[in-house]
Structures are given as structure tokens and as C-alpha cells.
Amino acid sequence: MMTLLCLVLCCIGFMHFSMANTKHFSAVTGKDLDDIAYGKIIFQVLGSSFLLVATWPAIAGWETEIGLVVWCGLMHVAAAMVSLFYTYLPGFVRVCWMWLMPGGLLQRAIAR
């Protein structure tokens, strides 16, 4: 359970990181990242925060030293997943970003 939680948090973190990239953002949303004030920084901060929070389930499940190793390993898996999703399931990424990710919801709120 802790493994899954850590993996999901890492995936969310990397999703935000990737959306802080101009190319990825416009590919997913069809909009320009520069049109959102502080968009890049906001997404990077959100991404970093999720990655940091992901240490909690790892440390809770494996103690500090081994937990950090597990966290690092799950970050590798999450990064690979996000990258493969972008390539082979772009529609899924779009839906996830617009309806599930805090960054996507924030982006929509700002747009309104």
C-alpha cells in the first residue's frame, strides 16, 4: 500500500515537472505555457512538493535509510511511466492533467 502511494505521488510530481516544460504543456493542453503567469514556477514547485511528500510513505514503510532507497527506485519507475504515457497514451495524460492533477485544476481555475 505504501509502495503504491509513493509511486502515485511520484507520478503526480513528475507529471507537474513535465508540464513545466513548454513543449509538453502545449502538446497536452494546446496552450502556451507563457500565457499562464508564473506557470512554469508553479508547476515546478508543485512537482517538487509531491516528490518530497512521496518520501513519507517510503520512510513509513521502510525506515529512513532503506525508505530513501525505495523512494529513489520508485521515482525511476514513475519517471519512466510518465515518459511512456506521453509517448503512447497522450489522451490519457490530457484527461489526467485536466481533471485529476492539482496543477491542471489550478490552470483551469486561473483561466476562468
Binding site: A80, S83, Y86
Partner: peptide, 25 residues
Amino acid sequence: ADFFMFRPKKKLLSWIDGHVLASVL
């Protein structure tokens, strides 16, 4: 910038992306 980039079916570009992805991730 290329952290999550993989462009399949692009011959040389695909090999570069694959190499960078496997290395950086």
C-alpha cells in the same frame, strides 16, 4: 527539456531519445 521526450519511429532520433531516457531517468 528532453527529460520525458521519446520520439518513436524516427530512426536516429529514437535511438538518441532511448539512450537519453535510459540514462537520465
